[in-house]
Simulated assay, not measured.
Amino acid sequence: MKKSSLIILLFIVLSCNNSKDKIIIIKNKKEIENKQLKEIQNPLENLDSITYIATKFINDYVSNCNKMKEQIGIIEWVNSYPNVSQKFKSELTKMIQDAEEKDPEYGLGFDPIFDAQDYPDDGFKLTQFDSTTNYLTVEAKSWKGFAITMRIKKMDNEYLLDGCGVINIPKNKQAKR
């Protein structure tokens, strides 16, 4: 079958007056097919990177919160964490500082990363991912119904956490409470 297709293709190419154009078209078609194949393969690699970054971040954050007396403050922890966008860090800092200025005793009153006052101490697992928007949802491993919306953004050829809980997540995309 391959030989007969190749022979027919060769016959068509040789019988045309503009054989160079035909060969270029065929060559470009092959290049396009190869590019499309790579694009099909890359989302799988990207999916692994994106979901890994998001789930690692939220589970590392849970581990920090579980440390009780040794835990690092939220702003300091996020600012020192790799794979977090500057926009996320700035928005978190602004949100907490604004709340503390308004009410120094109570502050924000909830954790903006969890979008809650309390959290499941056994961590989260991925439950949903939208590869067109890079929004994903993680759900508590054992606390049924406790979900958090997150967003990853590609910046300078690397994936960074750019939204989580209420930070840089539009109201209509936030997990329902």
Rank of each mutant, 00 (worst) to 15 (best):
90 S>F: 08
67 K>H: 02
75 I>L: 05
116 A>R: 05
98 D>E: 14
97 Q>C: 02
116 A>V: 00
111 D>E: 08
114 F>M: 15
90 S>N: 15
85 S>H: 11
74 I>A: 10
72 I>R: 12
111 D>Q: 06
99 A>Q: 09
85 S>C: 14
90 S>P: 01
102 K>I: 07
96 I>D: 07
73 G>S: 15
99 A>V: 04
86 Q>F: 01
89 K>A: 07
80 S>Y: 01
95 M>H: 05
102 K>D: 08
114 F>S: 13
81 Y>Q: 14
68 M>A: 13
95 M>N: 07
101 E>L: 09
102 K>A: 14
72 I>A: 09
83 N>A: 11
71 Q>A: 15
104 P>K: 03
118 D>C: 12
83 N>H: 15
82 P>G: 03
74 I>D: 11
80 S>V: 00
88 F>W: 06
81 Y>R: 14
90 S>K: 13
88 F>D: 09
113 I>S: 07
83 N>L: 12
97 Q>W: 00
98 D>C: 03
103 D>E: 05
98 D>Q: 08
83 N>G: 06
79 N>L: 07
94 K>V: 10
78 V>Q: 06
79 N>C: 10
116 A>E: 12
86 Q>H: 03
119 Y>I: 10
99 A>S: 15
118 D>N: 14
100 E>W: 03
77 W>R: 13
99 A>R: 06
119 Y>F: 15
107 G>H: 07
116 A>C: 06
116 A>M: 04
109 G>W: 14
67 K>P: 00
104 P>R: 03
90 S>Q: 15
72 I>E: 09
87 K>M: 05
105 E>W: 00
75 I>G: 07
81 Y>W: 07
108 L>V: 02
105 E>M: 04
109 G>Y: 12
102 K>G: 04
114 F>K: 09
69 K>H: 10
101 E>P: 03
100 E>P: 02
113 I>A: 08
91 E>R: 10
72 I>N: 08
75 I>R: 08
77 W>G: 13
70 E>H: 06
90 S>E: 14
112 P>K: 05
77 W>K: 13
73 G>D: 15
83 N>T: 09
86 Q>D: 13
95 M>T: 09
68 M>K: 15
73 G>F: 03
76 E>S: 12
74 I>T: 14
73 G>P: 01
105 E>K: 04
105 E>S: 10
93 T>D: 15
111 D>W: 02
88 F>N: 09
90 S>L: 12
